[in-house]
Write a protein that binds this DNA or RNA. Sequence first.
DNA 1: CCAGACGTTGTT
DNA 2: GTCTGG
DNA 3: CCAGACGTTGTT
DNA 4: GTCTGG
Length: 258
Amino acid sequence: MCGRYTLGRQPNSLLDYFHLHGEVPVYHLSWNITPSQMAPVVLQDTKQGSGAGRVCQLMRWGLVPGWSKGPDPRYNMINAKAETIDQKPAYKNAFSQRRCLIPCDGFYEWHAVPEHELEQKPEMSLALASEPASKKNTKKKNRIAKQPYYIYKNDDSLLALAGIWEQWASPDASQQIDSFSIITTDANPFMQNIHHRMPVILSPDQFDTWLSEQHQASDQLKSLLVPYQGDDLAMHTVSKAVNSPKNDGIELTEAVEA
DNA sequence: CCAGACGTTGTT
DNA sequence: GTCTGG
DNA sequence: CCAGACGTTGTT
DNA sequence: GTCTGG
């Protein structure tokens, strides 16, 4: 899963890594990008005659299908499962025609600590202890403490997440929204202790295939959507301050003891 | 044919 | 829009 | 992803 | 609990 990420470097720093053609839009540097926010994505230039190239454009995180009545948080379309992306009605069209890359510095995952581990770490039970004893607390959901982790490249270089995007317009075209979804796959060995899913991370030699507007065989595209194979990721625990979408700042990414 | 859905994650 | 269910 | 809100009526 | 908002 990937439900929060960071992009705290200046727009110009995306030019080289993504071989961008044209300008990078101004975006808000953030170490706590949340679903529904606008963020830059990279896609193949669609303009005729200007030559092949990649452009960067701001889009809303959370896919809004073209046939929907508008953004609806009941449909949590911030991620798309790689395994079924070419089958699901809500994603298959975007997968075959509108693939993109999402630039990021790193992303957060929350590790659900099972109750039996809490007994050895009583300090993690504080929030639970204040809950009145009741039948409600038998719901497992209320018994889990979550520890946020930050995952990033160990040389602090950019990451490119695989994504798909959509265009939506209201019937009278007064409102238009370009939106994207981040593709997830199984966690690689590095991450599976904290989570069993992770975003698909593509390397620069895969960008052309992924972004190509030429028809690509579904199998060839899906072969890119696998757990990250590199051994150059790093991770550490961070403050629970990242939990609140209201908080932002580079300090959210700093290592803090669990 | 028309109506209605269209999603992921984690948890047990 | 496209697919599934009735 | 997590945080935070969650409602209607009638009356002045 | 469930839904919306960021």
